[in-house]
Write a protein that binds this DNA or RNA. Structure first.
Lengths: 354, 354
DNA sequence: TTGTAGGCGTTATCAT
DNA sequence: ATGATAACGCCTACAA
């Protein structure tokens, strides 16, 4: 020792650091190993010392350093989720349920968002893994093969949500976007609509959106309509964009009598725009949505849409991951049921008066 | 070496681990220090080797282990935020801006939610610090002194948002909830309303909600009303709860002619309920909100509410933290301006017909 | 410009 | 039941 009088090192300029295992061990008069055991395998230490140690832990406000723990244990009890955006209420709701269920299993959620950009998603996956995520929640199937290879090679458990594909080779829990939208579109066509338009989120980076559009096309063909005749507008998720898209649509020569939207937010925007341009919904024009978020039941008229069990999906996804981490082998994709919520915004085709 | 023939250790049963600095260094024929420098101080390594190293990094898909890095560097470039709930759109919007601005400064956001529970918030703060958060974003001023002491002792930079108090001893950026609500309440009283009710989020764990109620009381006193005469219902944030609260209110003896809600979500629920019970808004009853979220402009009639610059607040909060981390000394609390959005849901008091 | 080596806080394997 | 002690992956003086 070069300087031998002080008990403590010279006071640091900045505040003191967090207490460490070392600090606790010293204060309790035991080794760091014992403190560690008190925290991780309490039954393997005698009651007497355990209580003493835990008292010190409490008193010092000790919390294990996460990084160090991850480094040593190679496990973090953390699940990473990469969602396209946080601003979308449906992801928020599903994630909430996901995280509640994770907590029930002693797992923590780490969220990242990809802004619907595949490269960014890839980046975020790496980041989450570097941060020690033990498993991942992914949205939709579509991503570069190399991403799946990475996950596979590192043997990182993952589950895909918000989409369903019975042929998919990945653990998944979701619903059939195409089938759900087809069912809704059938109702639209049965009501006599033939001049139909679609407002959807951008299709390129979004397989769920594409599936929904395909569903409309399927139903169109069933009634002898050519999908090409269906005007399609792609625009990002927001009420304003929905309104702008509707404005475009209303300028078309044979004005559509029904507009099917890829989600409720676009639908609400579209509806507001139609009304503010003097049209009656569904008197002059029918509008449908997808997701059944809260606002769908609030607007006037209430929105006919597809109900998706977001919370259930989040919860079951968490269970799947927990099982996977427990060593379970991946099961077949799980398919959740959707339900058409028939409300007021979809009505029969208005009588011709052109 | 006990077994000396294989180049590689026996293949692991599970997938391979992530590549390490070691791996990159070996493949590039340099030391780990050089690889580290290539990543952290590229200018301090010659172009030739740098390119070679970075190529290997790319090829191997190397990403630095976050925990190890934090351990060694004692810095993570990560900012922690503890918000009461993710389900509230206003926090979502502000956080989004916060995170965008953080990214601009090379910082990453880590979010945790406290569910409006002080003990949980305290817990989450510890967790975020253990995870290496360099600084924190907190919502509202109210928390145990011991929490502030902890932050202080560890000299963790932090900023408080969504609230303003000129006397506060903490770095803060927000708006004056009380003053904003008082201004809105004045308009309500000026329109002749005297039978007023309040629907608010639970007050106990929420200083912002309390401030807003105080604002109404202030305005009430200004017109000679006793705050006690103002019915007050506390209920958690949700459209349905707003509706239920309104149902209660409409059963009262002198039915209120105006209902001021602590936030837009409760207001929208309240409005829907009033309408579905046959009342006209604002013909029979006026309703106001707070926050000016998107839905406020969508409902019919559009909601009179207080606009809060959530995005600006998020952005500036990020700047403050970035400055603080850069060594800047904390400035005075910043006050952002709110604005009353006069729309259709607030009208004059209906003529008496009792 | 590059390499060597010590240490960051935990866990886990051995001894004891 | 408890205590040493070697990793874990990275950063950073310090040396060369």
């Amino acid at each position: 020792m070069t300087e031998g009088q002080g008990q403590k090192p010279p006071a640091r300029k900045a505040g003191s650091d967090a207490p460490t295992l070392q600090d606790v061990a010293q204060a309790a008069g035991v080794s760091t190993a014992t403190v560690s055991r008190c925290l991780n395998m309490p039954e393997r230490v005698v009651k007497d010392t355990r209580e003493r140690v835990l008292a010190v832990v409490e008193k010092l406000g000790y919390a294990p350093n996460f990084g160090a723990r991850a480094l040593a244990a190679k496990r973090t009890n953390t699940i990473g989720a990469i969602i396209p955006t946080m601003e979308n209420a449906i992801f928020a709701r599903g994630l909430q349920a996901f995280q509640e269920e994770l907590a029930r299993h002693g797992l923590t959620l780490l969220v990242a968002s990809s802004s619907y950009q595949p490269e960014l998603e890839r980046e975020q996956i790496r980041t989450l893994l570097a941060r020690g995520a033990d498993a991942l929640l992914l949205i939709g199937f579509e991503r570069a093969a190399s991403v799946y290879e990475l996950l596979d090679q590192r043997s990182v458990p993952y589950v895909i949500a918000w989409a369903f594909d019975e042929t998919a080779q990945h653990p998944a829990i979701g619903f059939d976007n195409r089938e759900a939208m087809r069912a809704l579109a059938r109702q639209v066509f049965e009501l006599g609509h033939r001049d139909v338009a679609i407002i959807t989120a951008p299709l390129a980076p979004n397989d769920r959106a594409r599936d929904r559009v395909s569903g409309v096309w399927d139903a169109a063909r069933e009634v002898g309509l050519c999908p090409d005749e269906i005007t399609l507008i792609e625009t990002p998720y927001s009420i304003e964009n929905g309104a702008a898209a509707m404005e475009d649509l209303l300028g078309q020569k044979p004005r559509p009598t029904a507009v099917m939207c890829g989600n409720d937010v676009l639908a609400v925007g579209a509806m507001g725009q139609a009304q503010s341009m003097g049209l009656s919904v569904p008197g002059d024009i029918s509008i449908t949505g997808f997701d059944d978020i809260e606002i769908a039941g609030i607007v006037t008229p209430a929105l006919t849409t597809v109900h998706v069990p977001h919370r259930q999906m989040g919860k079951e996804a968490a269970q799947v991951l927990s099982d996977l981490l427990g060593g379970a082998t991946a099961g077949a994709p799980v398919r959740l049921q959707t339900e058409i919520m028939s409300r007021a915004s979809l009505g029969p085709v208005p009588r011709e008066d052109a």
